[in-house]
Amino acid sequence: MRSEGPGLGGAGALAAGVLAILGLPLLGLSDYAMRVATLTALYAVAATGWTLIGGFANQVSLGQATMFGIGGYVSTLLFARWGVTPWLGGAAGAALAALVAIALGGVAFRLRGHYFALITLALAEMVRIVVEYDQPLTGGAQGLSVPLVRNSLVLLQFARARDYYEIAALLLLAALALSRAIAGWPLGYELRAVYDDEIAAALAGVNVRRAKMRAFVAGAILTALAGTVYAQFTGFIDPDSVLSIPLSIQLALYAIVGGARTWWGPLAGAALLVPLGELMTSSEAGAGAGITKVLYGLILVAMVIVEPDGLAALLNRRRRGARAQA
């Protein structure tokens, strides 16, 4: 399948989408619903970060959670130990994530395909082990709590979920705008060329390594920022919730289900699956905590068999079919 440029509607549709995302709190939803919406937005941002490299360039990373965790841990540590506002902490987390991405990419981009997936998984596990081991600094496996201050824009803490949502929604719009812009930039074309055939891309004059690195670093920054807001929002992080392989898989899952080759796919996947997951977790009331994840796994299996390019491709196929009939 040839992937075209940005796509998905004209300026009108885009404006409507932006208004819908920002205006969601006006619907007067419950605090719980707004919590779910906030989580959805944050995971969508993190999944967008994965898509830039995993979807656009087909460099399947299994370690995106590392960046999410770095965002969460850096801002929380700076806040808890030295009272640094998470606004600055988030920036520091994003900067560190960018540096880590450069270092990890330096090692991992020598490899392709399965080897790349394997090494990203290993590197992510190494980060998790170190964080768990260095208990005096990071709180180890027990995790870290964010000091509670309640309702301070300066310290990025609010009493109501809808205030967090507005922050998350702004971050989401920024992430989507960046992803859409990249898809249209020369970098987007380079990444698609890498997707199609890395060797051919290199022969055609694409600096493959540079293109991958740029996408990886941009994605790392987005995911780290989502991690910072997530930590503030939930008030608690531990290696399982922000640094684990299952989280890496979950982020890729959102992108793949929505459409990993489009800028809006990660949002579509997260908007579908995060509320579904929350709904199931709350309704089964802890009886069998595994069921939701079983479903996630099965959805992932079904999706790659039916349409590895996700709902986006299914929609495109139908649209093209309708046009052909007209």
Binding site: A252, I256, K293, Y296, L300, V304, P308
Partner: peptide, 18 residues
């Protein structure tokens, strides 16, 4: 695609584990 190769068994692993 490669993505399908990788995520098929990743999905299986998630489903079986849980």
């Amino acid at each position: 695609s490669q993505l399908g190769h990788i995520f098929l068994t990743v999905g299986l692993s998630v489903a079986l584990q849980n």
